[in-house]
Amino acid sequence: MSENICEQVSFGKVYFKHAEHLRNFLYYKSGDLHLAEDITQDAFSKLWEKCDEVVFSKAKSFLFTIANNLFLNKVKRNKVSLKFIKQTNRNFDKKDPQYLMEEKEFKSRLEKVISELPETQREVFLMNRIDGMKYKEIAALLGVSVKAIEKRMHKALKVLKNEIGDV
C-alpha cells in the first residue's frame, strides 16, 4: 500500500520529516543558510508538482536528488565557511576559564578544518555527525555504495585527526 503524497496531510508528513535534513545537507554543501532554505523549499515545490509520480517511500531520495541538481545548476561554487552551535555547557562559572578558552579555540579550528574539507567528504561527515544518519542511509541518498561513503568518512576523519587531533 502506498500513501499518496499529493494530499496535504501526507505531504506535510514528508515535509516535517525531511525538510530539516535536506536544509542541513544543502548547508554543508554551500555554507549559505538562506540559500539552503530556498533550495529546500524549491525541492519540495517540485515534489508537490510531481506528487502523482513519486511514492511515499521514495520521496526522500527524490528530494535529495532534486535538491542536488538545483544546487549544481544554481550555485557558483565558493569557498564555504560553516558555523555551528555547540550545545553549551551552562555551568560556566564552575569551569576553569583556561579550559573554556581552549574549548572555544578547539571549536573554531574544528569549524575551519571542516569547512575546508572537500565537499563530498564534508557532506558525508556532517550528515553522520549532525543528522545522525547511518552510512547506509547516506549511501542511498547520494546514490553511491556504502563502501564509498565509508572511504569519504575515513578521509574526513583523517584530515581532522591530523589537523586538530592533538589539541
Binding site: 515535509y15 516535517f16 530539516e20 542541513n24 523549499q41 552551535i85 555547540k86 555527525r129 549532525i130 585527526k161
Partner: peptide, 25 residues
C-alpha cells in the same frame, strides 16, 4: 578520534522553521 567524535557529535545547526516553511509551500 574519540575527542573528535565527542565534539562533533554535539554540534548543531540553527533549527529550521518548518512550521513557517510548510505554510509558505
Amino acid at each position: 578520534l574519540s575527542k573528535i567524535a565527542e565534539f562533533t557529535g554535539e554540534l548543531e545547526l540553527p533549527s529550521f522553521d518548518t512550521k513557517r516553511g510548510f505554510d509558505v509551500l
